[in-house]
Design a protein around this nucleic acid. Structure first.
Ligand SMILES: NC(=O)c1ccc[n+]([C@@H]2O[C@H](COP(=O)([O-])OP(=O)(O)OC[C@H]3O[C@@H](n4cnc5c(N)ncnc54)[C@H](O)[C@@H]3O)[C@@H](O)[C@H]2O)c1
Ligand SMILES: NC(=O)c1ccc[n+]([C@@H]2O[C@H](COP(=O)([O-])OP(=O)(O)OC[C@H]3O[C@@H](n4cnc5c(N)ncnc54)[C@H](O)[C@@H]3O)[C@@H](O)[C@H]2O)c1
Lengths: 229, 229
DNA sequence: CCGGCTTTGTGCAAACATTCACAAGGGCGT
DNA sequence: ACGCCCTTGTGAATGTTTGCACAAAGCCGG
């Protein structure tokens, strides 16, 4: 997903690749903290997070100099710093549009609320679904989208409708003031500048796996190997 | 560049970034085909897929020279070529481990089977769930994992269990012969060389969105708009 | 058959990302 | 108080991805 190339490398010059890894570090740090670990070296943390330790250090160095040479990082302190950088010290109201199979699974997902993401609304256009309660939340009609977004100051919208409705739902969310969208529908959404879209696409992930699986298979399988040279 | 004389280039040269975009192009091409479009230019396809047209052309050039200068690409032919490259001309049996909220949503997901991915098994360790039918499939006990993987020659496994079980499920899948894993559990899986893991993590995506949302908020909010004192 | 128009395929340079390798810094044992 | 040992933070080297810009190539109208 290409984002705008961030106009100027202002005070916040954190590379996109780093931003994408910070949540992984954070999760790893939480696990360590729960485990009673007070201090961790870049090497240990890197192994636990599945990355190279130099990369981890460089990533963390973008947030500031929070380690102690010869010792490592204070787990609790680093949790705080990473959380702050990611904006997790505040609450983020989220609206989920589409209460089908996926929308319901998302609403039921505990890990959702666990990091400050609060479901402010669960909307659907199907009258048969509206009014039912999911995870303690009553499904609202999607006519309420604008109202919900404004009342709860929702800035993050999750699209879990069929592909055909995704763009129009997206447009409405944006018009209502949402500036960040997580899209589960298999379509490329088009949005105005200033709005961030991230997609989660099961089918794409499987196809990427299939590509590599095929490559592996043609290696050890039939004798169709090494032609080039 | 040294001109490799022949053969389609099955040789291992497609950049990872390209591989990740091919499924998007493929989806876009299917939409065009359904729409009756027979031929498409790189510019049109690029816009529909949400990428730069030079990038698209370079991506496609890795598969071979399938365009016609002055005209564009034949949609149907390109669908075939991209599909072949991704390994979608064959069937990929998939096993889903964990038939909870997410596992059930996945099993019910139509787009799953639509590209040659066939659910060969849906497994769970909970006796209360085993035996129930989901999307026409009986949930099997996870003791059957090895049997299912071997009998159906499953090479792609989908992990939809709680985080705590994910690594052990992963180990068993790998031991049984699975070499590609799609992981929905919020943990870093460790696997031997030769095994591919891709993760889908809702929580990470939200945190990335929160980071950018925070930055946007601090732009227009308080007078941080550096203008030069 | 030719010249003009359009669009591909790619050389190249810049931007971005990863990794190595080590000097600088800091704690700890003596 | 000192020096040893460990680990951070980062310059520099290397690798990857992007996007521009344009020559080469194919179609079409005349
Ligand atoms: N289920 C999965 O595992 C899965 C996986 C990957 C992607 N997806 C994608 O996620 C999306 C949802 O999948 P699903 O399985 O939940 O589908 P679903 O059909 O079960 O649910 C879709 C819901 O959206 C509602 N809806 C339709 N149009 C709407 C609108 N304009 N406004 C509000 N609500 C609307 C429908 O009433 C329905 O309840 C689809 O785009 C699907 O391709 C699903
Ligand atoms: N629900 C979501 O929207 C969502 C979103 C993102 C990530 N996730 C992650 O996906 C995973 C599944 O989420 P869920 O909401 O479906 O949870 P869930 O609790 O509803 O389902 C988990 C299922 O896995 C089964 N299970 C547990 N251990 C097992 C084992 N060893 N072998 C086989 N099956 C086993 C359980 O019996 C249960 O049926 C979790 O790791 C969760 O963090 C879920």
């Amino acid at each position: 997903m290409s984002h705008r190339p961030v106009s100027a490398n202002g005070s916040h010059g954190i590379p996109e690749a780093t931003v994408a890894r910070l949540p992984v570090y954070l999760r790893t740090l939480y696990a360590l903290a729960e485990n009673g670990t007070a201090t961790v070296s870049s090497e240990e943390l890197a192994v636990a997070a599945g990355v190279n330790s130099a990369k981890l250090r460089k990533d963390l160095s973008h947030l500031g100099s929070y380690g102690t040479r010869g010792v490592g990082y204070d787990v609790e302190y680093l949790v705080y710093q990473v959380s702050r950088e990611l904006g997790l010290t505040q609450d983020w109201p989220v609206a989920i549009i589409g209460a089908g199979n996926l929308g319901r699974a998302l609403a039921n997902y505990g890990g959702f609320a666990s990091r400050g993401f609060r479901i402010a609304g669960l909307l659907d256009s199907d009258a048969a679904v509206v009014g039912t309660r999911i995870a303690g939340l009553a499904v609202q009609h999607s006519d309420e989208m604008e109202t919900v977004v404004r009342r709860h100051r929702v800035s993050i919208g999750v699209i879990a409708t069929p592909a055909g409705s995704a763009q129009s739902v997206c447009d409405r969310l944006v018009a209502a003031g949402v500036t960040s969208i997580l899209n589960f529908a298999p379509v490329v959404l088009s949005v105005p500048d200033g709005v961030d879209v991230r997609k989660v696409d099961l089918s794409i992930e499987l196809q990427i796996l299939a590509f590599h699986a095929q490559r592996k298979a043609s290696m050890s399988g039939p004798a169709v190997q090494v032609v080039g040279s």
